[in-house]
Computed example of a mutant assay.
Amino acid sequence: MAEAGDSEKPHFHGHRARLRARFLESGGAGIPDYEILELILFGIFRNGDTKPLAKALIAACGGSLAGVLAAPPERLKNVPGCGEAVIAALKVTREAGLRMLKADATQRPALSNWQALLDYCRAVLQHEGIEQFRILFLDRKNQVIADEQQQRGTVDHTPVYPREVVKRALELNAAALILVHNHPSGDPTPSRADIEVTRQVCDAAATLGIAVHDHLIIGRKGHVSFREKGLLG
């Protein structure tokens, strides 16, 4: 028989402790995205049910935790209950994850650590709503010496200037490049413009003895490697 007052307890009574315990026991395995997001939100809201906000955020950001973490603040603000403290916590969480992936991707020569490098590039760009062009600059041992955003464009175009790419490579004393950009449409298929600008960068770099190892296009549906497709020339 229930004790007096039990009926007055909210339905989420004890949920936080149970969820934390389940997470610690499993190491996160099998925990759905919305519950991982709840765990992040526990640090912002000391009391109350965070499940509705977690589910609302995921629904507004493409149905995944990754989409929530990568979403621009303007979109997050449109979700009722999502204020500056929540946005800051989400962005700090994403930045911590990116730094871990970047450390894994850059601690060994790029060509012998390709999957880690690809994982990092996908985490950075896969959910970006604006097209972004990045370059990984490598030394003579193919170690990453710099990872820089060169241009940020619109939803379907980023201006790329081969002369500026090569100029920056010379400033960094880079011996090789890996070009990376995203397609916000989700489809990573190279456009004619992508192929042409890659050829221009390769030609400009080659005149100065700088190699272009690959051009990666990142989309939500996967990625395309110019080297694998035979598009580097």
Rank of each mutant, 00 (worst) to 15 (best):
Q151P: 00
H223T: 14
P162K: 02
Y34N: 01
E171C: 09
E148C: 14
E38W: 02
T50N: 15
G5D: 06
A89D: 06
L53M: 13
L39K: 07
L118A: 03
D139T: 08
H223C: 13
P52W: 02
T198Y: 07
E84K: 04
V180T: 05
A211M: 11
H157C: 09
G97Y: 08
T158L: 10
K229W: 06
A176P: 08
N142E: 13
I44Y: 04
L53F: 00
E84V: 09
A169R: 04
L19R: 01
H223E: 14
L76P: 01
V166G: 03
I31N: 05
V197L: 07
C82D: 10
M1W: 01
E148G: 06
C121H: 07
R152Y: 08
E8A: 08
E35I: 02
T158R: 09
D203K: 05
G48L: 10
I195A: 15
L179F: 05
F226V: 00
A105E: 03
V197Y: 09
L117Q: 11
I145D: 10
R16Y: 03
V86G: 05
G129K: 04
A60P: 10
L76G: 01
I87N: 06
T198R: 00
A123M: 05
F133H: 00
R122E: 14
P162Y: 06
S7L: 03
R140A: 14
V224S: 12
G233S: 12
A17V: 05
C121A: 12
R108L: 15
L170E: 14
F23A: 01
G97T: 09
L57Y: 13
S7Q: 05
H127W: 02
D139Y: 06
L19S: 02
T189M: 12
E74S: 15
H213D: 14
R134Y: 08
L76D: 04
D156C: 03
A103N: 11
E228W: 06
H213V: 15
D156G: 02
A123V: 06
A56C: 12
P80I: 04
H127C: 07
N142C: 10
N47W: 14
N113Y: 03
G30F: 08
Q151C: 11
G97C: 05
H181G: 09
D147V: 03
K229R: 15
V160E: 08
L177N: 11
V165P: 00
L41Q: 01
D119H: 11
E164H: 10
L101D: 06
G222F: 14
Y161V: 15
G48Q: 04
D33S: 12
G14P: 00
Q143A: 11
E228H: 14
L111R: 06
W114R: 12
R168Q: 15
D49M: 04
W114E: 13
S191G: 14
V124D: 03
E8N: 03
A56G: 12
L69D: 07
L41S: 01
R18W: 01
S7K: 00
L170H: 12
E8W: 00
K167N: 12
S64K: 08
T93S: 14
A59V: 06
E196L: 05
M100R: 13
Q151W: 07
L118N: 01
T189Y: 06
P159F: 10
G27L: 08
A175Y: 11
N142T: 09
Q143C: 12
D49Q: 03
E84A: 13
R75L: 15
K102H: 14
T158H: 10
G153D: 13
T207G: 04
I195P: 08
V68N: 06
A71R: 04
R227I: 09
